[in-house]
Amino acid sequence: MTPVTRPRGERGPLASIGLHAGLLIAVAISLFPVVWLVLTSLKPRDSWLSAELQLFNDSSLDNYARVLTSTQFPQWLLNSVLTAGLTMVLGVFLAATTGYAVSRFRFPGHRSVMWLLLITQMFPVAILIVPLYNLMAGLGLLNQIPGLVIAYMTIAVPFCAWMMKSYFDTVPVEIDQAAMVDGLTPFGTFWRVVLPLARPGIAVTAFYCFMTAWGEVGYATVFMSQEDKRTLGVGLQQFVGQHWSDWGLMTASAVLIAIPAGAVFLLVQRHLITGLTAGATKA
């Protein structure tokens, strides 16, 4: 780095090149497997494991056609969208209220709540599955999307509540106080004033909740045994068995799965760069 100070936003050409080079390398690494996934999805079904390294051989959209017409992909997609969407909305809401309460109110137990939430994440999920299944069976929530959403809450909300708390901690308390002086209720302050300021945090948690539900397979496999209730993750596993696999279907549907996830990200990422910008903090 040059010791010479420059106005913000400007830097030497060397630094610019370095910056772009660094980012390009990172992009290459992060994209390579994804690109390979896309290329594989365009190959005929049995050439995925082929002795020859070929980038393009007999490219076609056959695999996509097969996924969309001869599997239950559309049904799985619908289930997944519902599950992930609900998880996202509920998860963000619950995480934000919890995080805000702990960040702002000095109520008895405000510290232990967060640590208790954290402890629930320490017991390995793989071992929780059987008792949780029995609980879900008892509550009549097996093969029900709400049941799965509740199960995902237990994974997503503690993390998200912690993240929201730390984002709220960076929003100055004076803002709340000003809002309360203006006559807003605590909830009104939270909802109308603080929440919009924590938008980057919400964007992160929303995407986190969505992706947790979108890519999860452990709970979904066990809780959703009915064929018409399966989510994408569960459905996809049908394409790769122990002693056989249909990589054409697997890769094509993986690409199709990544598209909605990408779309959700595009929606929320806009908020990543707004949030606490010029002047908003000056209460």
């Binding site: 059987v130 299944y133 496999t221 066990v222 045994s225 064929e227 122990q242």
Partner: peptide, 16 residues
Amino acid sequence: YVNVPSDQAQNQFQTA
């Protein structure tokens, strides 16, 4: 008819 992959069926059946 429900198709369950053979490497999962044993575990899932035990749980259920």
